[in-house]
Design a protein around this nucleic acid. Structure first.
Lengths: 206, 206
DNA sequence: CTCACATGCATGTAAGTACTTGCATCTATC
DNA sequence: GATAGATGCAAGTACTTACATGCATGTGAG
């Protein structure tokens, strides 16, 4: 009898470090949680998807609420923006494309959590705060960028509203993607360029 | 003993017609359902909020799933657009503002259901289909409008993408409202005008 | 080798939840 | 005034779910 043929029992015990187990649980939690909501997700399902025993889940996190909090905190950990600002070229259109791409990526990373934060009203776990951290941080960057360009006279309008408008374009794109993908799929970069183009033509001075 | 002092028991039995009861249940269902999700909402809660007995709820709708389906169908009933198209003035900017206002209204009417349809993936009840009926219908109108204006040379670009961009502005505004209302609230009509303005400057020919 | 430790496994518990049922009561209608 | 229909009320059933617990086993560090 080959040992390799029955990895069932030994598997979880052997191969995974506690940390690895923890990560598998967190991943499974996020998947299910974002698809079925907090109450729609059962601890048994999470354990199954993670390939661990349900008891293990509780030994790691204590209870379901703590697990959820650990999950959102884990996946919304660090927001690094220093690279973003310093990498800008100075050319308005190019900069906005770069910012747009960065924004798009951050929103996509937490798309599921953002949607969750929209729908669950009793958010005792601060899912919303966590999920919106990165978008908010970029919002600040954008406001400042817009303000500078308004001061130089390149753009017109209230920087806050310019920023909001700019973000809304990308926000809608990520959130509404699945509902609007019908015909004519467009290359993401082309789409970004299109959005920036329209935006710029719309708000550029003269 | 005054009869008026104990309306408790008689109340529901007396005052409400079966139809009225049905409507109260549907309303309560929508409120709770959109706040806590399908699984987060209990039939007991719905009954309480509606001010009826839980048994009554089942006598009306049979089971929870049927209730949910009846609820979304009831609130997404008719989509009337004939007025919209015929009321347009012919002036591009004015028309777009009018369309924008209409769009905004329809999205707001089903905001909660749209958010639900984003977050619940196993949507056996067609909540998504129902919730998106009105926005989709308007989408069609907008595409056709854009196409006409592209043909006359007033606008440039792919009508489908123009329409999508246009809708995305209002979509983001409704969906993301609660997360972005921080400072500087803006008058809704001003905001619509601003959006249409930017959009038009961005996509108008020359 | 051994011993702490992480895990699997089986079983259990207490609470909640969808849904049912039988009966009493009110109301409108004939 | 009798009768049918809508509802309230109370109790109950079958199932799920979060969470606990005791025991066996494999693994890695000393």
């Amino acid at each position: 009898m080959l040992e390799a043929e029955r990895p069932t029992k030994a598997d979880a015990t052997r191969s995974a470090s506690p940390e690895e187990t923890r990560l598998r649980i967190l991943g499974a939690t996020r998947e299910l949680f974002s698809k079925k909501g907090r109450r729609g997700t059962t601890t048994r399902e999470i354990a199954e998807r993670a390939g661990v025993n349900e008891a293990t889940l509780f030994r790691h996190f204590g209870n379901k609420d703590a697990l959820i909090m650990a999950c959102t905190q884990h996946f919304c950990g660090a927001v690094e923006l220093q690279g973003l600002v310093s990498d800008l070229s100075g050319d308005l259109e190019e900069d906005l494309r770069e910012i747009g791409r960065a924004l798009l990526g951050r929103i996509e990373n937490v798309r599921d959590l953002i949607i969750m934060s929209l729908s669950e009203e009793d958010d005792e776990f601060g899912v919303a705060d966590q999920a919106w951290r990165a978008p908010y941080a970029i919002h600040q960057v954008i406001v400042e960028y817009m303000a500078r360009r308004v001061q130089t006279g390149e753009l017109r309008g209230d920087p806050i509203w310019l920023a909001r408008f700019f973000m809304a374009m990308f926000f809608a794109r990520v959130i509404g993607r699945k509902k609007f993908r019908e015909a004519t799929p467009m290359d993401p970069d082309d789409q970004t360029a299109f959005q920036v183009n329209v935006f710029l033509n719309g708000v550029r001075s003269k």
